[in-house]
Nucleic acid binder design. Structure first.
Lengths: 120, 120
DNA sequence: TCATTATTTCAACTTGTGTTGTATTATCAA
DNA sequence: TTGATAATACAACACAAGTTGAAATAATGA
C-alpha cells in the first residue's frame, strides 16, 4: 500500500459521519445500499451525504454501481486489511512477537489482498 | 472500542507527518524514541513535532515516559488491531466469508486485546 | 412529451487544522 | 546558583474541511 492511500483512508474515516456510512455498508456486505437508503437510515441530507460518499469512494473505501437512477454503494473491506498490514509491517524492527501474538507476522500478511511492502 | 476512540485514531493518522511518526515508532517497538531523536530523524521543528506528539498521545496511539529531561515515546500497536476488529465486526451481516478469508471472523477477534463489541 | 424522482454539482459561509516564532517550564552539569 | 539543553505552551496566521440551500443532470413512468 502506498502512503497516500493510507492517508486517504484515514482522512475519510476521521469524520464520524463517514465512519457511520462505512460501518453501515460493512454490515450490508455485498448487498450494499443505494444513496437514498443510506441518507434516510442515517438522517443525513442527500446533499451532504453525496459529498461524503464521493470522499469515501475516491479514497477507495467504497465502490459504486449504477442501477437505473439509483447509485448502489458497497464497502471495500479488504482495503482495511491491507491498511493494518501496512501499519504493522516491520513492527519492532522485524520482531513482532514483542508487541503482538506470535503469529501476527504470518497471519496479518495472509489477510492482505496485496503483497506486503514498506510502501513509503 | 468506542466510536470516539476510532475517530481519534483516524484523525491522528490522517496527517502524513503523524503517520510518519507513528510508523517510525512502530518499527522501533518497545525501545521507542525520545522526542528530539524523532525530530532530527524526520526533520521536523521541535515545536511542530510536540504538537503532533500530543495529538497522537491523546488519541492513545503513543505512550510516553519521562527519562530525566527526555520524553520517550512508544507506539501502541494493539490499538490498531482493536481498530480493525471494530471496523470488520458484524461485517456482511454476520457472514464475513462473503468478503474475507473464511477464518477472518475468528482470527481478527483473536488479535484484539479487548472483547469485540459493536461499540456505537 | 412532461412531470417526477434520485443524485450530484456549485457557491457561500462557518469552523477547524497545521505551521511557525517566541516565551516558558523543567532538568542536568559545573 | 548559573548556564545550557529538552520539550512544551501560547498566539497568530494561512489554509482546508464540513454543512447547507438552490440549481443542474439524468433516468423513470404516465
Amino acid at each position: 500500500m502506498e502512503k497516500k492511500t493510507a492517508i486517504a483512508v484515514f482522512e475519510s474515516l476521521s469524520s464520524g459521519l463517514r465512519l457511520d456510512v462505512y460501518r453501515l455498508l460493512v454490515k450490508k456486505g455485498m448487498e450494499g445500499m443505494v444513496a437514498g437508503e443510506i441518507a434516510s437510515t442515517l438522517h443525513i441530507p442527500p446533499t451532504n451525504l453525496s459529498f461524503h460518499l464521493k470522499a469515501l469512494t475516491q479514497a477507495g473505501l467504497l465502490s459504486v454501481a449504477q442501477e437505473g437512477r439509483f447509485q448502489r454503494y458497497q464497502a471495500n473491506i479488504p482495503l482495511m486489511l491491507d491498511l493494518i498490514a501496512y501499519l504493522t509491517n516491520e513492527c519492532c524492527a522485524g520482531h513482532p512477537e514483542q508487541c503482538l501474538p506470535q503469529c501476527a507476522d504470518t497471519v496479518i500478511p495472509f489477510f492482505s489482498s496485496t503483497p506486503v511492502s514498506s510502501g513509503r
